[in-house]
Design a binder for these strands. Structure first.
Lengths: 208, 208
DNA sequence: AATTATGTGGAGGCAGCCTCCGGATCAGGA
DNA sequence: TCCTGATCCGGAGGCTGCCTCCACATAATT
């Protein structure tokens, strides 16, 4: 198990993973305005044209110079991340509400939400999931957020005996990430594939 | 406009899908020699440095001019495909031998072989699977080969009642492809994730 | 209003993609 | 063997996108 030990920090004591993820926003008014403009332009550009969109195009779209874009996001990755992080935060917040459902239902719903969501942001997900477990600074904490959000749901399901207990949230997310990255498949089909994978995770009480 | 659309005549009037996968080889001696050189260089370059390798580098490596490379492979895709096709053919041929095993074992073994194999060729697979179901001329027939090889194994397993029968080979391959594309995971971990997914496909005779 | 810290934007250097065509090379006939 | 047309080679060059750098502009502060 080379990569970061997944089973480690699922429940990490991260206090406000939800807010502190986004890299420090600039302070001056114009800087902040441009920062937001770039993110907005990037989000729509990535969503529409995939992650291949040129950064120069995004800058143009945002009405700023290419230099400004690079000032805020020194790397293509950084920009991808900034956009991605926002989206993930939103997703994580949904986990809280799912706690009301039955263990399995909650877990499955979260997984489905993840895929569903990713389906629309495939461009981002596809590019970013490639860097999971790599030297991704900000992305690591983002992943931690996902863990923190999904981990409890998984553990609850495992405690209830409806999910095999030899998996951790990192693996589940990787599995889902892999399915998410299937391109050329209808959203409905992806959901079906997910349900198959979930079925592999499930453990029927009277089973075995 | 992400990718250019020179997807014109790469295909040519392909006769047989099984053998004619590789695009028509050139006729003149020197041309054919260079064609083979480029493919060889591309294979090792892609395997070593991932699919990001520059075409110019491949041309240099092959000892030919960049123009020559483009003459034979008008598109980056075309080159990727040419290399990929050869590999897939080899994989497909292995399916025949698996027919001796039990239905489930044969099916699972094939799936594992697929992942195993892809793991080494991740660079290729990752890039190419993105184009599944897209306007990929030659690649389509290549996929057909995969279907032809894996389909019977799946059907046999379904007939024996050990695999749920509401899936087809295309979905299975997509599922596996998705898992294959999980990066940052150890081969062993990927195999575990596959086994989970396979478990979702499996149908125990006394189950349900 | 003046000063200073901070931010802007695009020119420019670099690399990779791809096209184009003058010249080299091959194949077949005299 | 030599000639000749068909075929193929290869790299210069145009283009786009990545990223850096810095003279200039603007917000914040005094």
């Amino acid at each position: 198990m080379s990569t970061t030990e997944p089973t480690r920090q699922q429940t990490a004591p991260t206090e406000q993973p939800a807010r502190g993820l986004t890299s420090a926003r600039p302070k001056r008014a114009d800087a902040r305005r441009n920062y937001d403009r770039v993110i907005a332009a990037a989000r729509s550009a990535f969503t529409e044209s995939g992650a291949e969109t040129s950064l120069e195009g995004i800058a143009r779209r945002a009405g700023v110079g290419i230099g400004t874009l690079y000032r805020h996001f020194p790397t293509r990755q950084a920009l991808l991340e900034a956009v991605y992080v926002e989206e993930v935060e939103r997703l994580c917040n949904s986990a809280a509400e799912l706690a009301r459902l039955e263990p399995w239902e909650a877990f499955a719903a979260w997984a489905e939400g993840l895929v569903d969501y990713m389906a629309t942001k495939l461009a981002l997900a596809s590019e970013l999931f490639d860097y999971v477990d790599r030297d991704a600074p900000v992305f690591t904490s983002c992943r931690a957020s996902l863990f923190a959000a999904g981990g409890p749901l998984l553990q609850r399901a495992q405690a209830a005996g409806v999910v095999r207990d030899d998996v951790d949230i990192a693996e589940v997310i990787q599995l889902i990430g892999g399915i998410t990255k299937i391109q050329g498949a209808e959203p409905a089909q992806i959901r079906r594939l997910l349900s198959i994978a979930l079925d592999g995770l499930r453990r029927h009480p009277r089973d075995d």
